[in-house]
Every structure is written in C-alpha cells, then in structure tokens.
C-alpha cells in the first residue's frame, strides 16, 4: 500500500487523548511503503527500529533522515529497507567501522543507497526549520567545503543584512519521527532526562510522532516538573512503553551503553551473512521488545541499570 502523507498545516494539534499502544500497532499504523522517516539518536529508538524490521515485507522501502547515527540506522540499511539516507554521520563510533553502511554505499549490498549529506548542525537546522514552519535556516557551517558542492539543496548566498556568505538548508518535515525518551504520560507529554540531542526538534518537524519510553507516568508526575517536558502532547501520535528500549545503546539515568554487546554486534555486521544471522536471531526471531529483552537477558539489562545508577540517578548527585 502506498502511504499518503498528510499535508502539514499550522494548527494541526494532536488531541489530548490516550495514545499508549504497542510498537507493533504504532509501526503498522504510521509507517508504510516510502515513508520519509526521521530518527533520533538520543536516545536510540531500538525497540521501534526492531519492529520496523519485523514489518519489512509490508514496508518495503523507506527514506531516512538522521543527524548522526551510531549503529541503529545500519540495522535498517542492512535489511535493504533504506532507499535514501539524509545524514551528517553514519558510523560505529566506539564500535568502529560501519561495514553495513560501507557495503551499501560502495557496493550496493543489499541495495544501492542514495546519500544526501550535511554537517551535523546543518541537518539539525533542517529539522529546526521544519519545526518552526519556515522554509529554510541560515547557518555558518559548510561554507568553503565540498558538502554544498555535492549537495545542491544547500545554497550558499550572501546574507541580505551583512552581505556575508551564509549557507541555507531547506526545511525537513518527515512523515514520521521515531525516538526513545525517558518518560511520558498516557496522552503523550514526553519528558527527556539528561541529554536529548535533537529529539525535541525532530518531533516538532514531523507529521506523525512515535515515542517509546522507559516509563509511563501519571499526568500529575508530568505536572510536578512541566519544564522537563521536551515534547508536549500536541505533537505526539503514539506512546510505546519499552523499558530498556534503547539497548544496546544508553538511556541516561536508566542504564548505560552495553559496549561488550555493541562491539560484538559490529563484529557480526562485518559480513552481510553475519548481519543476517544476527537479525534472524535477535530481531526477526523475537516476537516483540520484551521477547528481545528476554533473549538478551533481564539479568544483564538490570545490571546495566544498577551500574548506571551507581554513578547517576535523576534528582540526586552521586
């Protein structure tokens, strides 16, 4: 089925109704063939990405917009779901070289990928323009580099006020944004704790927003600290309860990065066969996120939580 995106219009507020659903429901309701999908990196929406992979035969193809991603976008790229990637960075970080991305970009395995590049702030400002409902943002990055040379969407012009060069990047309004945050109430007021990258901006730019959270809390808990609300309910379509929903990555104050696991995943991603074996076991071989967590082991996940909270817990100095 071809997805028909809804035209974004000012004033299109989402209602203040209960929005809690499973990842399976949220993905099947909002993500379809050729969806233009925005993905946040802080925190990584692993539970939602795993579900997209489980529904890959229905979804078939996606265009992806990211700032910088470490690992999670490549879980999608290796399935052949990604036709186009708008990005600033896609690599393994501490886990090293991203062989999934290299295979797609250099050899078209499992599918050729179109790459449209920006700097990190350049891509973030595209989401910012989208969030503000304006056509573009000016910035002082990318000037003099080859980034605009190979990406005609970036316009280097003289600013009409100072007559000095600025780079313009066009607004980005994805059909759907996915992200993982700390907590939300049932109607979709989302609070991030710790650093949250561009998840607030991305939610405002997208037409539909799916947020997985560590905890679902009461409206009164949200009202205790309303300035922690990074994404108010009127942007949000779906709340998915997914404890440990960013594993193998981190969720600040809840658990830290599982480096031993991430390094091992990257080792397996070294070949397409290794990638497929890992996906078969950990993603396609599990029914849902809880099932995945059981396979990884809740003992392991809880140990990551205890270790994180030895060093930091929200509201305390340790």
């Amino acid at each position: 089925m071809r997805y028909q995106p809804i035209e974004a219009k000012p004033g299109r507020a989402k209602p203040a109704v209960k929005k809690v659903m499973t990842a399976q429901e949220a993905v099947s309701r909002f993500i379809h063939e050729n969806t233009y999908l925005g993905m946040s990196v802080s925190a990584a929406p692993a539970a939602l990405i795993w579900e997209i992979v489980r529904q890959k035969d229905r979804i078939k193809s996606l265009d992806l917009t990211i700032t910088s991603q470490i690992g999670m976008s490549s879980v999608l790229i290796g399935t052949g779901l990604v036709r186009k990637l708008e990005m600033a960075y896609n690599w393994g970080g501490i886990e090293g070289e991203d062989k999934v991305f290299r295979r797609a970009a250099e050899k078209g395995i499992p599918r050729p990928i179109e790459i449209e590049e920006y700097s990190n702030f350049g891509m973030a400002m595209r989401w910012q323009a989208g969030a503000l409902g304006i056509p573009y943002m000016p910035l002082k990055s990318m000037l003099g580099s080859d980034i605009p040379k190979y990406n005609p969407k970036i316009k280097v012009v003289d600013d009409p006020y100072t007559n000095r060069p600025v780079a313009l990047v066009p607004a980005c309004n994805p059909d759907v944004a996915i992200m993982h945050c700390a907590r939300a109430d049932e109607i979709g007021n989302v609070q991030a704790l710790g650093l949250y990258g561009n998840s607030d901006t991305l939610a405002r730019a997208a037409r539909h927003v799916i947020v997985s959270v560590e905890e679902i809390v009461t409206q009164d808990e949200i009202r205790r600290f309303p300035n922690l609300t990074t994404i108010p309910y009127y942007y949000v379509d779906a709340i998915v309860h997914a404890p440990f929903g960013a594993h193998w990555r981190e969720s600040t104050y809840y658990y830290h990065h599982d480096l031993a696991y991430g390094l091992d995943v990257y080792r397996q991603f070294g070949t397409q066969e290794g990638y497929e074996a890992w996906i078969d076991k950990y993603v396609l071989g599990t029914a849902d996120w809880d099932d995945y967590c059981r396979l990884v082991g809740y003992d392991r996940l809880n140990r990551l939580r205890l270790s994180e909270q030895k060093y930091q817990k929200f509201g305390e100095v340790r």
Partner: peptide, 17 residues
C-alpha cells in the same frame, strides 16, 4: 567511492566556527 567513511558529523561545524 572506493571507501565510504563516516561523514562530517559535527567536524565541519567545529572547523567552521
């Protein structure tokens, strides 16, 4: 590309400003 690398990330932004 012979070898596809990570991309700018924030490096271009920092080198600029």
């Amino acid at each position: 590309p012979k070898v596809r690398l990570a991309g700018s990330g924030g490096a271009n932004d920092l080198a600029s400003s």
